[in-house]
Every structure is written in C-alpha cells, then in structure tokens.
Amino acid sequence: MLTIIDRYILKRYLATFTVMLFMFIPIGIVIDVSEKVNKMIENEIPFVDIAIYYYNFTVYFANLLFPIFLFLSVIWFTSKLANNTEVIAILSSGISFTRFLRPYIIGATIVSVFVLLMGFFIVPSASEGFNSFRYTYLKGGGKQAMRGDNTNVYRQISDDEFIFVNSYNETTETAYNFTLEKFNGDQLDYKIVASRIKWNPKDSTYTLYDYTKRTVGKLNDKIERVPEKKAKFSFDLEDLTPVVYIAETLNFGKLVEFIEKEKERGSSDINTYLVVFYKKFSIPVSAFILTLIAVSVSSMKRRGGMGMNLAIGIAIAFSYVFFDKIFGTLAEKSTFSPLLAVWLPNILYTILGYYLLRNAKR
C-alpha cells in the first residue's frame, strides 16, 4: 500500500518526466525544422506529409532519448527535495534509504513497461514513417539509398536452395547475373543461370533473360537454354537487399520471424538486426539503472546546489548514451557479440549505480 510520501514522490517522478518530454521535444522539432525548411520548400512537400513526419519524429526521438529525459527529470526533482531538506526530513522520520527508493522503483516500472510496449508496437511504425520521409524527400537517392549493399548478394532461401546476384536495381526491380543452385543433400540437383531477372508484380512471377538450366544426371547432364523464360520462385526479389532500417520498422512478432529468416539465409546484416531486437529489452531496463544513479547523485545537498547535481547528471546521462552507441556500432560492424554489446552499458552502469547507492546510504 502506498503511503502519502510514496504518492507524493511518485507523482513528482511521473509529472517531472512528462514535463521534461514536453519541454525538449518542441525544441528538437524547432531545430529540425530550421535545418530542413529549405529542402521542404524546394521539394514542395505537402503539409500533411510534414505533419505526419513530425508526429513520427516525436515518437522516434522520445523513445531514442528517453533515458536522458528520465535521468535529468529524476535529478531535477530529487535535487529540489534535497535542497528543501525534504529528503533529510523523510530519512529522519525512521524511513530507511532503501524504503525511500520504493516510489522511485514503482515510477521506473511504470515508465519501463510503457517504453517496452511502445518499442514493440508504436515505435516501429513511427520509425518507418520517419525514415521513409527522410529518404524520399530529404536525402538523395530515393528508394535506392534506402537499400543496403546491393552488389554481390549471396543468400540461402531454403534448406537446400541458394541464390546469387551480381547487382540489384531497386528502380527497375531487376537483378543482374542471377544464379540459383538447388541441392539434394551434398549433391547439386540443378543450377539456373540468367544474365538478368526482372520482377513482374502483376502475376508475381519473374522473367529470366538468357535463361540456362543445368540438371545434373547420373550419367549425363540435361541442359535447357532459352532467350527468355517466366518462372515462380519462393523468394521475393526485394529480399535480396532489405531496407537498411527494416528491423526498426517491424513489430515484435514480425521482427522475431524476420531475424530467424535472415539467420537461415546467412545475412551479413544479422548483427544489425539483433542489436535492434536486444535494445527493445535493454532500453526499458535502463529506466531502473538510471533512476537509482540519479537518486544516489541528487539526494544529498552539495556545494553548488541543483546546478552541480544537474552537471553531474548530464555528464553521466550522455556518457551512457555514448557507450550505448559505441558498443551498438561495434557489434554491427564487427564480430563482437550483439547481446553483450547491447547489455554492456547497462552492466557497467549497474556497477556504478551500486557504488553510488552505497555511498548515498552512508
């Protein structure tokens, strides 16, 4: 059962966090508008598209920067409690420091669950709209720029089928120097080669040019050659080069299916997708870690007052985001474990939080 003090602190926790969000998001929008207004005018972007973009912008960056907003909000109102000697009064009444933390933990739980659900269901849609607008109107290259490396693509599309293309053109939906190999165990069953393969959206088929199919026989191979042939395959041509931010746009269930599919195909971008997946859990957990650190830093009076607490808080918050980005990029660009990379900042700052909490109790 929550006491009056619990409700008081919990109310301040949630209210300050909400106010912090509504204070900084408009500032972010104003800065973004000032940077992009010229391109928006040049490209004659419809007002409706701009309004939708800034809705997605708000959701996307609120989720991305929520650890900083949460940390600063806890530092802010806890420092005010300390400067007004309210913390001393609460602890002097016989309440232990651990018991004093209970409303903070409850508040962190509420925020964490909210961020977790947003990350599963709301943020993916916002991410898709946000990135699609940027690549369509603001960045050069359009759809082609939204794709990853589209040269020398090699994929496993089933347990016994492999495809290779030398290059892929998103605009014409055409792949060049196409090869499909079908195996039966360790033995090659047949091999299809074409100079180019084009997707036909009307009937969901492919047109292969300079088509050659070699079927391996026990004694002699059977070879079929035709200038042009239509065929159906079990893969989507678009799957050869997924959108670079595809993992960010999928809800939890679809993301799990997508990652399993990409693992079977031997995707070179699998670490990028795993980083996105693991962050859906690590970011909400950071609410607890940063809350404990913020309370430990700001629950005592310091020379310099609230300003000193905020300075320490800003340094810790930005260092957390810095390490989170560094380790995430390291996992995406190397063989470093994505799971370890995503959770390492939380582990390091949990140790820091434990050390600060012990000192605060004293």
Rank of each mutant, 00 (worst) to 15 (best):
L2D: 01
I4L: 13
I5G: 05
T18F: 13
V19D: 04
F22A: 11
F24G: 07
I31P: 00
M40E: 01
I41H: 07
N43C: 09
I45L: 09
I50R: 09
I52Q: 08
N56D: 13
N56F: 04
T58D: 01
Y60E: 06
N63T: 13
P67Q: 08
S73Q: 09
V74H: 00
W76L: 15
S79V: 05
E86C: 07
I90P: 01
L91T: 06
Y104K: 13
M118V: 13
G140W: 08
M146I: 03
G148L: 13
T151Y: 08
F164Y: 15
A175C: 07
N184M: 04
D186G: 08
V193E: 06
A194L: 10
S195G: 14
W199D: 02
N200T: 08
N200D: 13
K202E: 12
Y206G: 03
T207W: 10
K218A: 14
K222I: 12
I259R: 11
E264M: 15
D269H: 10
K279G: 02
P284L: 08
L290E: 03
N309W: 05
A315S: 15
I316M: 09
S319F: 13
F322T: 11
D324P: 02
E332I: 10
T335L: 12
L344E: 00
L348K: 12
Y349M: 11
